[in-house]
Amino acid sequence: MEEGKNLKNLREYEYGALRELENIGIGNSATSLYKLTNNLVQTRVLGAKFELIENIPKITGISEFPVLGSFMHIEKDLSGYILIFFPEKSVKNLSIILSGEDRGIDSVDTISRSLIEEVSHILAGTYVTALSTFLGLNILISTPYTVYDMFGSILNSVLTEMSCKTDFALLLDAEFLIKEEKIYGNVLTLFDPASLEYILKRIDEIFPRKSA
């Protein structure tokens, strides 16, 4: 795991570049969501951090709050995961907009679950495509796995799966909000150390820095 240890202290400008990358990803996802809902979508980049996998919940916060969570693998040139979380109320509100009917169901049922899974897949797809275009890399996502459960359980399970292969991960944390419709979503992107190295290398190639 020398690669991980070497990368432990990223420099400020590297974090700046990663946050910008995250901004590109979430910004494009927001455009997709705008097209789907015809509502103004606000986004916020919460931060980028390279950490030991077991420390990631300390950054994102951990809760037993119920959410509908979808996760997809990031494949090809980069490797990692993308997770999209919607709280119960947002699932309901988004389902009403997309299906055009209020079925009066408060909990997450099969129909709203499939709808949101599809939306999550589109949002993650746009996110990854934006990164792929910007970095000039070939990045794909898998089909989504979706579950309605505690935020903490979903995140921990994905982190556990990731930790089978690597000890460190780059976390990009972002959120979006449709204020008028009270729809909130959280997008977490995780990359393994080799992918982080590759991303930084690509950024260096695209924006060569003068040596100090």
């Binding site: 459960d149 505690m150 903490g152």
Partner: peptide, 12 residues
């Protein structure tokens, strides 16, 4: 009488 809590056990 202290309580110890852990959140979100999934596959853990």
């Amino acid at each position: 009488p202290v309580k110890i809590k852990t959140y979100g056990l999934g596959s853990c």
